[in-house]
Amino acid sequence: MSPVGPLLLAALLFCIGIYGIIARRNAVLVLISVEMMLNAVNINLVTFQNLLYPDDPLVSGQIFALFIIAVAAAEVGVGLAIVFNLFRNRASIDVDDVDLMRW
């Protein structure tokens, strides 16, 4: 199969994630969009590994994808903890409300 299809799907998911990050106001939904962008990168990496460089002895693409899955899980844990703290302190998880550092 041609590598264009998976690459286009990954680009679409990445752009959907960017739309979600800019347009959504709920902090948990912003984290969901970040997760989708990381996932799009994984599709890219696996496509390059398996369709274009299947003989790479280091298996770089798939191992990078595994690393990204693990780092994304850690990021979601810490991000949700921060969002809970925000909710506890401000009674709102609207990202537009978090403007303490604006001057």
Partner: peptide, 11 residues
């Protein structure tokens, strides 16, 4: 776009 049809193989 110019890449032909590749065989799907992986490690």
């Amino acid at each position: 776009g110019g890449e032909g049809v590749r065989e799907v193989t992986g490690p």
